[in-house]
């Protein structure tokens, strides 16, 4: 392998479309979701998944956004997001820099569970659990990555799935940084 090829590889990796996770710390302000999402709209970048939640710091929200794009574009988008007045900071992570999960719910007819053990086995063997049992339907809950929750969906389909829903991704970085200390540092740095 020669040096030129390495440089080419770097350039290729910056222009390769892959999955990126943005983690954005913000004020809890109405309208901000719109301000964040139009930054993607304007650049014709589709948001694959989005989740907004409170953090352990009071009044501070965290947006977790998954997009398919290139490193080149993502870095520009992240800088633009950081410019929003009500945003503290935005991080960008690749898949190997985070732990993440999604939660899926499956509604199936209750009678499926009455007709033998198959459905119950499926739930148990797939790390899912039964959330609620009603007279007409049962809701199964599974946490995992997209391919896992999708896999269970395929397996449940023969039993008749009434409804399926999956949450946006929630992710945590592999760093040991504390949010409150990070925000303080960010403030002092400027």
């Amino acid at each position: 392998m020669n040096k030129t090829k390495t440089v080419t590889e770097i350039v290729d990796s910056r222009n390769e479309v892959r999955s990126f996770n943005l983690s954005i710390l913000t004020e809890n302000k109405s309208g901000l979701l719109n301000a964040v999402t139009i930054i993607f709209t304007r650049r014709k970048i589709n948001i694959e998944s989005i989740n907004v939640s409170e953090t352990e710091v009071e009044g501070v929200s965290r947006y977790t956004i998954v997009i398919e794009s290139t490193r080149e574009k993502v870095e520009k988008v992240v800088k633009r997001i950081r410019k929003l007045i009500d945003v503290f900071w935005a991080f960008v992570y690749e898949e190997d820099e985070i732990y993440y999960q999604e939660i899926a719910l499956y509604k199936v007819p209750t009678k499926v569970f009455l007709d033998g053990d198959n459905a119950e086995h499926l739930v148990r063997n797939n790390g899912a659990r039964i959330l609620v049992i009603e007279e007409d339907f049962i809701i199964i809950e599974k946490t995992g990555h997209q391919h896992e929750t999708k896999d269970l969906l395929e397996k449940l389909k023969p039993f008749g799935v009434l409804e399926f829903v999956r949450s946006g991704r929630v992710a945590m970085s592999k760093s040991t940084r504390r949010t409150d200390l990070f925000l303080r540092e960010l403030h002092n740095h400027h």
């Binding site: 913000t26 945003v87 403030h187 400027h190």
Partner: peptide, 10 residues
């Protein structure tokens, strides 16, 4: 001052 906004970077 606005805590999320740092208009003049060091």
């Amino acid at each position: 001052e606005i805590r999320t906004y740092h208009p003049v970077p060091k």
